[in-house]
């Protein structure tokens, strides 16, 4: 009984931290963006003025009308509470500016599948590949394989990720013309569950996905390698070797099994970051995901859309880490002991 009580207390504490962190992160973002000089309407008006040489002098009434529609005429605290009220009670995030007058929640819902589809597959693949290559690099830490992998990972982790994507686009997309470089599907196919459309989607996903994998695999290789190298020096591994276990068992049950704990946490965290999208990659490939939406929203001072995107990614990151906290006792017997 005592044990369950303590576990319940642990869960409650984690959930409370979860809610508080979301609220705090949300509040900070809200005021941060509002404290910037400018707002969506004036940014838009300014752009119009510059681009088309429209004289906005007479348009101030129009500007005022738009400001009112976006609630920008009210004080910041009023805006804050009404946004909160609408978001929590009505699940409404307000109209977007980049896609006026469609509501933000609709825009998000439209883009989530693309981002989730692209990123979850890429992240999972990168994790599995990185873990295996990293384990190999750690296990054979004095061989050329290890130095090859480590050098690759170090170089790639220092290169800006979009550069890799640009290179891929250049070679595979433009020079060799074997893969499409823009969008998520070919316009000639009807959207829906049919083979040509699915194939087209997969084909379009290759370049962005490969650019994400090539880059993020580097981090997994480096971290797994150092974990494995550390574990190789652990007494339990030396003892396991002295027990005369076959190498495969040593590497898997004693090496990788122990490296898996921190790496699983890492995976869950990076899965949580899915909802923040891949801003640069999505923008580069004009992929209709959340990152590309956020990039446009920031460019247009679109408070509502920005808040929607940020909110979504905060909630998912926090949820992922909450799930880890609740699952960790199941994976790691030592955490289990602390909890109960």
């Amino acid at each position: 009984m005592q044990k369950y009580k303590r576990f319940l207390f642990y869960v409650l504490r984690k959930v409370a931290t979860y809610l508080f962190t979301i609220w705090a992160a949300f509040t900070i973002t809200f005021f941060l963006f509002r404290s910037l000089p400018g707002d969506p309407v004036s940014a838009w008006a300014g752009a119009l003025q510059q681009r088309y040489a429209v004289n906005m002098a007479g348009g101030s009434e129009m500007v005022e009308a738009y400001r009112k529609q976006f609630g920008l005429d009210k004080s910041i605290s009023e805006q804050y509470f009404s946004w909160m009220y609408n978001a929590i009670v009505h699940q409404k995030l307000g109209p977007s500016f980049v896609n006026f007058p469609r509501p933000v929640e609709e825009l998000l819902a439209e883009r989530i599948p693309w981002t989730v589809g692209l990123l979850s597959v890429s992240i999972l693949l990168a994790w599995v590949i990185g873990l295996l290559l990293g384990a190999l690099a750690g296990w054979l830490r004095n061989s050329w394989i290890s130095s090859l992998l480590t050098n690759y990972a170090v170089v790639i982790s220092q290169v800006p990720p979009y550069l890799v994507a640009v290179m891929l686009v250049l070679w595979l997309g433009y020079s060799w013309r074997i893969l499409p470089t823009q969008g998520a599907w070919d316009a000639q196919y009807t959207k829906g569950f049919n083979l040509p459309f699915i194939l087209s989607v997969l084909k379009h996903a290759i370049l962005p996905s490969v650019s994400i994998i090539l880059v993020s695999v580097a981090g997994w290789i480096l971290s797994t390698r150092s974990l494995i190298v550390n574990i190789l020096g652990e007494d339990y591994l030396i003892y396991a070797e002295a027990k005369g276990l076959p190498t495969s068992q040593l590497l898997l049950r004693y090496g990788l099994r122990n490296a898996l704990l921190p790496q699983t946490t890492g995976l869950a965290l990076s899965l949580g970051f899915i909802m923040s999208g891949q801003l640069l990659i999505e923008t580069l490939f004009l992929y209709p995901g959340l990152g590309e939406l956020l990039a446009r929203a920031i460019g247009a001072f679109d408070f509502n859309t920005i808040m929607g995107c940020v909110m979504l990614s905060i909630v998912t990151v926090m949820t992922a880490s909450l799930i880890i906290d609740l699952l960790l006792p199941l994976i790691d017997p030592r955490v289990r002991a602390v909890v109960s």
Binding site: E234, D235, Y236, R253, Y254, P333, R334
Partner: peptide, 8 residues
């Protein structure tokens, strides 16, 4: 003291 695998 540390000769045993902590997760087995």
């Amino acid at each position: 003291m540390n000769a045993l695998n902590p997760v087995m």
